[in-house]
Design a protein around this nucleic acid. Structure first.
Lengths: 225, 225
DNA sequence: CGATAGCATATTGGATACAATCTACAATAT
DNA sequence: ATATTGTAGATTGTATCCAATATGCTATCG
């Protein structure tokens, strides 16, 4: 077993369903596919040059994640969340992320802190709003990841997936960026000082504040439809 | 629209994939399908008298829930969790359920309390170990449900799904029933007294205690394999 | 006798074909 | 004109079929 060749684990390679799942997931999370938009199996199959079978598998998985809703014989639509549902998901995130960062700051490495700082800086500098969502996610996720709780992290990630297409509206349309920038700095600082309690409280406030701002915005926005 | 006939919403009717998903999920959660057991598409298809297509859809959804693991071209096996993973999931449950019951006791109705008491009694009386898992779930879920946080409840339910096949071993093989019975009584009492803090703390202790007992048992058990 | 290549069988991934159902519009009756 | 029924096309759900891959046995070579 000493062949001078870089090998990859082909068993872990992606099936067509995997590729389609990832693509749809990303499009929904980024908001490219809008709230309530109808997803036609045939259309997606044609786009990816496959039959409808792997498309259906991807859709089944997306539904299990809550990102789409399937109605038998009618089709799949991108899930459209009520204000209550959005609000609940932010509360959920505040609970989970507040707890995880408390545990994380005790074990987070200096390299990881440096990475988080880098993401925070990029987030503050970059002006392309398409990048904000991802940089925001990277910043937070980086702070959490050293605590070695993969299940918690996966659930957190999924919860974020379910609200990011709304969060983006909050950042872009309510001057949320400037506030987020400051709050990120505060959280990062608490992490650098290894102050779990402060990091937790600031993270909770960060999430719940964004929630309030978003809900307020959506309340106005949804009236004029 | 006033026809004297009891109608049902056929659009909500189950597809073959739904039926198979539910059946497999239940079998895994109850432990009928064991840890690491291989699931053959063709065999399942034959059992339900359908083709493999809806079976594959069900398997895709089960994998998304973490209940099975799929390996390309090899097949699906019931997920086998490490002690660390099991332990993490119990911590997760303790965090979530501790918080939810705190919020729930403020709004829980007397009827719901009566139902919870009924489940607790059944749990204590029944001797058929196959019923324990479900009664335990019903007891806790009943206490939570009035708080109207469907997303939280769904995540809690899924987390329980992922560990119940192990929990059952703890109840059956470590005299966990007697302790669970007492702890249920304590939690119920705190709920009746509308003491959110006590209910939360007792629920956390209940879950983390079961976790410790289970892990200890599994450590011994897995050595002799 | 042991290791490796070749082959047969089993199983999964995906394509094609068909059945069930929905949607929209035309036809008909009142 | 309005409401109901019938029909055609579109779309989803499932069955059947083929291709890609894994597994295990056999044969061959050293």
């Amino acid at each position: 077993m000493s062949l001078n060749l870089r090998a990859v684990d082909l068993r872990a390679a992606s099936s067509a369903a995997d590729v389609i799942f990832d693509a749809l997931r990303e499009a929904i999370v980024e908001g490219t596919l809008k709230d309530g938009e109808l997803l036609r199996q045939d259309q997606i199959a044609t786009m990816f040059n496959v039959s409808r079978i792997p498309v259906r598998e991807a859709l089944a998985r997306l539904e299990e994640q809550g990102l789409i809703t399937n109605q038998r014989y009618k089709g799949a639509v991108v899930s459209s969340l009520s204000l209550d549902e959005i609000s609940e998901m932010f509360e959920f995130r505040a609970l989970l992320e507040g707890e995880i960062i408390r545990q994380a700051v005790d074990v987070i490495s200096d390299e990881t802190l440096a990475k988080a700082k880098d993401y925070a800086n990029q987030f503050a500098r970059v002006t392309d709003s398409n990048l904000w969502g991802n940089l925001n996610r990277q910043f937070h996720y980086t702070l959490y990841k050293d605590c070695k709780k993969p299940y918690h992290l996966q659930i957190i990630s999924n919860a974020l997936d379910n609200v990011s297409r709304y969060l983006r509206a909050q950042l872009v349309l309510t001057a949320g960026i400037e506030r987020a920038r400051k709050e990120h700095a505060g959280i990062l600082n608490a992490a650098i000082n290894r102050d779990g309690e402060a990091a937790s409280e600031l993270t909770r406030a960060h999430i719940l504040g964004a929630s309030r701002s978003l809900i307020e915005f959506l309340e106005k926005d949804r009236q004029n439809v």
